[in-house]
Simulated assay, not measured.
Amino acid sequence: MVKQMTEMLKGTLEGIVLAMLLGRPAYGYEITAWLREQGFTDIAEGTIYALLVRFERRGLVDVEKVPSEKGPPRKVYSLNAQGQEYLDEFWRTWSFLSERLEQLREGGR
């Protein structure tokens, strides 16, 4: 089951993190900690940092460097208008898929 969870999570992690950033800006470790609190205990920090770099390259987030008490400045990510559009599309796709999966689970076609 762990492998199956990992594979399913790969397909939804973008939406999960963007939804989190919709609520408030956050930095990488903070996102990882929140995900772990939500039960996603196997997520590596490196996975989240790679995802945030992809978001930045695709123009889905705004990035602000904020001074840190411990070390170099932190990159704080916030969802921008393009990221909001992408998240809206994610939720439309999620709704479509979840409805179809529920139909299948109930024995429908």
Results as ranks from 00 to 15, higher is better:
M1P: 11
Q4E: 13
M5L: 14
E7W: 10
K10Y: 11
G11Y: 04
E14D: 09
I16D: 03
I16L: 15
V17D: 01
L18F: 03
A19N: 12
P25C: 07
P25V: 04
A26T: 00
G28Y: 02
Y29V: 07
Y29C: 05
W34V: 14
L35W: 00
E37W: 09
G39N: 01
G39P: 04
T41K: 13
D42M: 05
I43G: 00
A44C: 05
G46A: 10
T47Y: 15
I48A: 01
I48S: 05
Y49G: 06
Y49M: 08
A50R: 14
L51E: 10
L52R: 03
V53K: 06
R54S: 10
R54W: 02
R54Y: 08
F55K: 05
E56C: 04
E56K: 09
E56Y: 08
G59E: 04
G59L: 00
G59Q: 02
G59D: 00
V61W: 12
V61E: 03
V63H: 08
V63R: 01
V66T: 06
S68W: 02
S68H: 07
P72M: 01
P72I: 00
P73E: 03
P73S: 01
V76I: 10
V76F: 00
V76K: 02
Y77R: 02
Y77I: 04
S78W: 07
N80P: 01
Q82N: 03
E85N: 11
Y86R: 13
Y86L: 06
D88M: 09
F90R: 00
R92P: 03
T93F: 09
T93I: 08
W94R: 09
F96H: 10
E99Q: 07
E99K: 11
E99D: 12
R100I: 10
E102W: 12
L104N: 10
R105K: 15
G108A: 05
